[in-house]
Design a protein around this nucleic acid. Structure first.
Lengths: 204, 204
DNA sequence: CCGCTTCCATAACGATTGCAATGGAAACCA
DNA sequence: TGGTTTCCATTGCAATCGTTATGGAAGCGG
């Protein structure tokens, strides 16, 4: 099978190697945690050597940043298909949260989250926070598009957005530190949806 | 000054050395992040040598666990002084969340949280999750004492508790990965309080 | 078919890590 | 006051980390 590997274009080889390395990083962190996701462990899982990593990503921080950007990108793509102002507020909230949770609740995001924490703590004081530079703008744009008809001040809207992100992040975090959170946090998500629907409809 | 140090009881020496080491761990993680909180950096900040750490805590994991336990303990103590069922639900919710946030929002908790993530990922599959073994019981007991009069099923009560912890954890997490969160998240906390008050009073 | 570039494996390197072993000073107990 | 225990500094070590330098194989353009 796949003995075509003797005949592949450079672009194909590059794409596959990059994907294998990035997948290995995510899988490795998910399995043994960030602290034990060493360079040798990553290369072992990816089935490549460190030379390959060096060629494509430069150094270890390079892979981590690439994984983060990839995660942000796929999240933004996922959010694109949100229903417009045609549907009811409740329906839009439901779709939005479900979609967002399909990202925050994914196994991959647990790894991304650990990378995010680690990279963020190593950030130079002058640089923009990783979340803000990578995700905040997309998130905010899509949010405004989905809930453009809500009668909220800019301040109120931002607070709601921050609350949403915080809750999703928190539920995801608890799955890590709380351990056995294989259970789907439907109750928590429902509480979040209620709060959103109520606030977006101006019910103080 | 403090040349009294030539005359101190063993218990005093022990207490001070332990406190200095644990404080150094927290301070170190808060400053440079868990990844760079190495043994030498910790001992440098504490003004002791590794021998002292080894004597009191055994190994590095020992310090981390001690810091976690200490954090849990102080949190439980803080929660003890909650008003009983005399006050109104709104007042109790307000006091409870303010008190809980004074823990989750503290600078120390950021370090604790990073330790928690790291230790949890290194946990053996059979062991209890750190949060559950260290904090869940106390939390649940105090919660039930504070809101004993709420007409909620056990399932609903647990969901509310989990939601509360998730939101607080999430807000705290966003301060780390979002960077500039020196701002007090009053708006988010208000949204949480509203959800709690409403649910505890049975307003579907 | 052949130079050239891209891609990746191999094999070292220096720096750090956390830990074990030993020794001595201070505090306690009699 | 002398023996014992507690406390902690020192030193050395094995392991491992991430990185760099170099060489060769695979695809590409002429």
């Amino acid at each position: 099978m796949a003995t075509q590997s003797a005949r592949r274009t450079q672009a194909e080889r590059t794409a596959e190697t990059r994907a294998r390395i990035m997948d290995a990083v995510v899988e490795c962190i998910a399995d043994v945690g960030f602290g034990r996701a060493t360079a040798s462990e990553i290369t072992r899982r990816a089935g490549v050597t460190w030379g390959a990593v060096q060629h494509h990503f430069g150094d270890k921080d390079g892979i981590l940043r690439a994984v983060l950007e990839d995660s942000f990108e796929r999240f933004a793509e996922r959010l694109e298909g949100m229903p417009g102002t045609g549907a009811s507020v409740n329906e839009r909230v439901d779709a939005f949260i479900n979609c967002a949770w399909s990202h925050f609740g994914s196994a991959d995001y647990q790894s991304t989250f650990e990378i995010l924490l680690q990279v963020e703590r190593a950030r130079a004081p002058g640089d923009l926070p990783t979340w803000q530079s990578g995700m905040s703008k997309e998130w905010s744009r899509i949010w405004r598009a989905a809930f453009a008809d809500a009668r909220l001040s800019r301040r109120e809207s931002l607070a709601l957005q921050r609350y949403t992100v915080s809750v999703l992040t928190g539920i995801a975090s608890m799955r890590v530190i709380g351990g056995g959170g294989q259970r789907r946090p439907d109750a928590e998500l429902d509480l979040l949806k209620d709060a959103l629907s109520r606030s977006l409809q101006g019910q103080a």
